[in-house]
Design a protein around this nucleic acid. Structure first.
Lengths: 226, 226
DNA sequence: AATTAACTTCAAAATCTCTTCAAAAAGCGA
DNA sequence: TCGCTTTTTGAAGAGATTTTGAAGTTAATT
């Protein structure tokens, strides 16, 4: 399951995304409204966690945008503004739920799950692709009947690749997605490759095909047509 | 035993939850109906204490929701509305008991216990998993014919792990479920590990397998496939 | 052939788990 | 209530694993 967290408060954003990542989600974070909207194009998020207090606008605009352009994406509003007004307006504009701060992270998790379930996108915790099965609840990856012993980054990388299968992902975008921080374009991102390599090795060692294709000069993609 | 208190009156909620916590329950409190429903997903409460006078709805909806989605959870209605109507309707909808305000806290305690006992009687009071047997009525855990001498936290931890077996539980979520208080994401949660350790030791000392698996970087899970 | 990117290898750095020990809190009997 | 025992929590550090960085080699593209 893929989430987009729109939150201007840096530390809080890290906490939330860290927690949710551990719970098995693929989480991306953006700070402002502008970036949020541009993030949406092309990627397929399941749920957007939207803080209403954004520096460059009320956040309500983002909600409106999402609901008009991507009606399939669920929206959970999180906000310190406990004003009833916002809640009413938010739900009126099509938000799926409203969670006032402060909140338990587990409650956030429960609500995200609830939204997802409600939207009935097969609700299951298992992603299956050919001989690869990923269970995001048990955090278990099975390839050809053998369970892979993946590290956290490897697991997240695989999830990210699969969610975006057949799409070329630059090392930069992989880095940004897995690490969350802003990354400078000149960085080498060579460390990303380490994980690619390890992942490949583990998948093929278990008998899986070498789905991760390197696109010389542009990045990597999970090729489902092999 | 884990309770959910749904009560909009702040002071009263504090009194009740404070008292019940002292009596050894894990109590969580929510203020509104919406929050009550989302709290239920994924968590395993034993009894819900439900005030019918909620700000965002009659509370009866919550009851209906609980009974249709989580029939195993007991519901005790507490309400200032001493109207016979509500009592009848509540019990009709499947509430286990009805306690009009004002009431003695000790009576509340007695009723909660009664509900719990009644439900345990009628249902399965024993959870059995391989060589581990948990009797939730006598609070007794037997492993390979020897009774474990578990502390309260150890017992609850084991129960929580078993209920969620094969699911990866982060230290954070374990902490939130066993302690109930609001927890900050930056806390270390190292104390959770102490209990994990003690539990492991006691189970293996009695001849049980080491079911509690650490998932490096993610948390722990009770692995039933060993 | 020159250039750039991908890959390998190896090791340092960072992170996470686990151990140990002790303080704080809770429970208990007098 | 007081003092004692048990349980729970906290903190520092050892040990293990993962992640990152750096230097050098191979491969692809023009």
């Amino acid at each position: 399951m893929k989430l987009l967290l729109v939150e201007d408060h840096d530390e809080l954003a890290n906490n939330i995304s860290g927690y949710l990542a551990k719970e098995g989600y693929v989480v991306e974070t953006v700070l402002g409204q502008q970036r949020a909207i541009s993030k949406l194009t092309g990627f397929d998020y399941d749920v957007v966690l939207l803080d209403l207090m954004l520096p460059d606008g009320s956040g309500m605009d983002v909600l409106e945008y999402i609901k008009s352009h991507y009606p399939d994406i669920g929206v959970l509003i999180i906000s310190a503004k406990n004003a009833l007004d916002d809640k009413v307006k938010g739900l009126e504009l099509g938000a799926d739920d409203y969670l006032p701060k402060p909140f338990h992270l587990s409650e956030l998790n429960a609500r995200v799950k609830a939204i997802y379930r409600r939207r009935q996108m097969s609700g299951h915790s298992k992603m299956v692709f050919n001989e690869i099965t990923i269970d995001t609840v048990t955090i278990e990856v099975v390839v050809c009947d053998t369970t892979l012993d993946l590290t956290r980054k490897e697991y997240e990388l695989l999830l990210f690749l699969l969610v975006n299968k057949n799409r070329v992902l630059t090392k930069q975008s992989i880095a940004e997605h897995l690490w969350g921080d802003y990354m400078d374009a000149m960085d080498s991102f060579d460390f990303v490759y380490q994980h690619i390599k390890n992942l490949r090795k583990k998948i093929t060692a278990a008998g899986g095909k070498d789905y991760i294709q390197t696109m010389y000069g542009s990045g990597y993609k999970f090729n489902s047509n092999l």
